[in-house]
């Protein structure tokens, strides 16, 4: 792939995520989406940089702030919006909502609302991949809060022990809801924790999607040749409130000056400089049509029938 093609892919994916989430935020006050939403606005580069380095058959295990990961990995956008609307055409047939997006055909395994629970699942998928023959890799996405859970350390230890094909990706936005990392952890950087488990790591400090992609692609290539696991930590910034569609700088737990540092790094601004007007216009038109379709589809889809309440508790034998 040429640099220009790659730039177009980054731009398209980030633009799609950003515009979908802006539309979600715009619609949210109408109460059409009766589900907690954790927006990725500002954090898209991590999901996009990593997922662009993966194949469709590779596994990703997103967090509850997972819209970006779902979209970047190629999850079905219509089914996503329908899921947020609680419709029967949703990716979880209306039973999961924003925090439980899933699309196994795109390798998007279900997102979990309990911090850190997806990490060992991703390790298990890597175990499956290692026993299989199709050379897949698995990616666990998690925030800087999840690394405080015991299960993160248990998972790193086991993955390191068994040398599993997994990439641990820490999306470090520095806040666990409203509490900054300095009030929660000692000042050893998270990526350096990996060394304790014999896991090589790297760190991208500035949210640069090209750097994230390069780091992820290098690790993924080594995973496919039998090395690993690896950990990639990316500092990034959440522009919106922890949960909900609004800004929250007025709450006083963080300073708007923090955001000022990140605005100039907005990949939609930086990537646009490297794109021709023609290709940018083409991407924008294509993405906006896709978004209109998705929201129309969600709006027009039926809600689940009452019989759905008791359906799918168990999977019956084939």
């Amino acid at each position: 792939m040429t640099d220009d093609q790659l730039t177009q892919r980054f731009y398209r994916s980030i633009y799609l995520i950003r515009k979908i989430e802006e539309e979600i935020a715009r619609i949210y006050p109408t109460d059409k989406i009766k589900s907690p939403i954790h927006l990725s606005i500002g954090q898209e580069a991590v999901a996009v940089g990593v997922c662009e380095a993966l194949n469709t058959s590779d596994y990703v295990f997103p967090t509850y702030r997972g819209h970006a990961t779902y979209i970047a990995k190629g999850g079905n956008v219509k089914a996503m919006i329908a899921e947020l609307y609680g419709k029967s055409t949703g990716c979880a047939r209306g039973k999961g909502g924003s925090m439980h997006l899933i699309d196994p055909h795109a390798g998007v395994m279900g997102a979990s609302a309990v911090v850190g629970t997806n990490i060992p699942l991703a390790v298990g998928a890597a175990l499956s991949a290692k026993l299989g023959t199709d050379n897949r890799v698995s990616v666990a996405f998690f925030g800087d809060g999840a690394v405080e859970e015991g299960v993160f350390h248990e998972s790193m230890n086991f993955a390191g022990l068994k040398k599993l094909p997994i990439l641990f990706v820490c999306e470090n936005n520095d806040y666990a809801i409203h509490t900054p990392r300095k009030d929660r952890q000692s000042d050893v950087p998270i990526y350096r924790w990996a060394e304790s488990y014999g896991i090589e790591s790297s760190y991208v400090p500035d949210g640069d999607v090209s750097k994230i992609y390069s780091a992820a692609a290098a690790f993924v290539s080594r995973l496919r040749s039998g090395e690993g696991p690896f950990l990639l930590e990316c500092s990034i910034y959440r522009w919106k409130e922890h949960v909900g569609p609004n800004d929250d700088f007025a709450e006083g737990y963080r300073d708007a000056k923090e955001l000022d540092q990140w605005i100039p790094r907005d990949p939609l601004v930086t990537l646009a400089r490297d794109l021709s007007n023609q290709s940018r216009s083409r991407i924008i038109m294509e993405v906006e049509a896709l978004i209109t379709d998705a929201f129309d589809f969600a709006q027009e889809s039926p809600v689940p029938d009452a019989t759905e309440l008791l359906a799918d508790l168990f999977q019956e034998a084939n």
Partner: peptide, 26 residues
């Protein structure tokens, strides 16, 4: 040893590993 293995004393993660493996075909 790939199909029958001992584990670290990590019940939380090892349960998750089994679930992740079950989700993906084992």
């Amino acid at each position: 040893n790939a199909r029958v293995f001992d584990t670290p004393i990590s019940e939380d993660a090892m349960t998750g590993v089994g679930i992740g493996a079950a989700l993906t075909g084992l």
